[in-house]
């Protein structure tokens, strides 16, 4: 029994309007993506002149993708990107989950100040913090280390810190909204706090964790600036970094840019669709609970 199937309502004018609104908005969000795909297969000269036509006939080319594959070791670039983003995501949800739980359920002195600090840390633009961080990490010897994995760590650590506060705020909001009765009964059955967290909070807050994971992954993956600053060695460069590097000077080579966008977006879409399923799972759990 899902939540959705319980509601019964006849086909009405209001339903049609609802669908109409939703469809119009989704058109605005999907069309650009289609536009990008279309133009990635088009010769550059035709993009500005006729960007809304299909890439057929003399307009069609595979050159844009060919250039990308020629210039980039795609396999290792994807691997580096995924290593960084997955590591960041996992660390963030573990650390933020614990902290959010603590902030949602515990009362202690200085909590208000702590919360303000967390909100404030969301405000630090990365270009304001990157230089001190670079110097610090250099002293630690993890920037441009001979070991590529350690070099990747130099990006992972600041990205974790940068995403934590967002994750804590969202997760805390969700956990706070959960009814406390479940935890109470678990407590009466003799569970300790850690068990309550792993056995009750984690499963019930799954949709929220999935949401946070998606955003963390996305931001880490698309965070060009940090990657640009820390990843110098050829073996450590990520897909986002490499594609932006070779497009940055292409100026108006829109065809190649579009192809780059596609190549960068593909893994993100796959991960999103995977986690999307997870959200649905989380929802069913929510329904059973309700």
């Amino acid at each position: 029994m899902t939540a959705l199937s319980k509601r019964k309502s006849p086909v009405s004018v209001s339903k049609i309007i609802v669908y109409l609104v939703l469809i119009v908005w989704s058109l605005t969000t999907i069309y650009p993506f289609i536009w990008v795909i279309m133009n990635s297969f088009k010769k550059n000269a035709y993009i500005q002149q006729s960007s809304f036509t299909l890439p057929v006939g003399k307009r069609f080319t595979m050159q844009n993708f060919q250039t990308a594959f020629e210039r980039i070791d795609i396999g290792s670039a994807y691997l580096n990107s995924l290593l960084i983003s997955i590591a960041v995501t996992i660390l963030v949800i573990i650390l933020a989950g614990l902290s959010a739980f603590a902030l949602a359920r515990y009362q202690f002195r200085g909590k208000k100040i702590l919360e303000s600090l967390i909100v404030a840390s969301m405000m630090f633009p990365v270009f304001a913090t990157i230089i001190p961080v670079f110097r610090m990490e250099y002293r630690w010897g993890i920037v441009n280390n001979d070991n590529n994995l350690i070099s990747l760590l130099s990006v992972i650590l600041p990205q974790v810190a940068g995403n934590l506060s967002f994750a804590i705020i969202v997760l805390r909001g969700y956990i706070q909204g959960l009814p406390i009765e479940l935890e109470e009964s678990a407590f009466l059955e003799g569970c300790n706090v850690v068990q309550i967290f792993t056995k009750i909070i984690l499963p019930v807050a799954k949709p929220s964790f999935a949401t946070v994971s998606i955003f963390t992954f996305l931001w880490s993956y698309n965070d060009l600036f940090t990657q640009m600053f820390f990843l110098d060695r050829p073996g450590t460069r990520t897909i986002t970094l490499l594609l932006s590097q070779i497009t940055s000077q292409a100026g108006t080579n829109y065809g190649f840019m579009n192809a780059s966008v596609i190549l960068v977006v593909i893994p993100v879409l796959i991960i999103y669709i995977l986690l999307q399923k997870n959200i649905i799972k989380g929802m069913t759990i929510g329904a059973v609970k309700g």
Partner: peptide, 28 residues
């Protein structure tokens, strides 16, 4: 009653705070 013992609290909060202190507040 459940959340009166504050021991676990530090375990939960300190890793995150450490990260933020080192990578955000120190640069700030």
């Amino acid at each position: 009653m459940i959340y009166r013992k504050k021991g676990a609290l530090f375990l939960f909060l300190i890793p995150s705070l450490l990260f933020m202190a080192v990578f955000l507040y120190y640069p700030f």
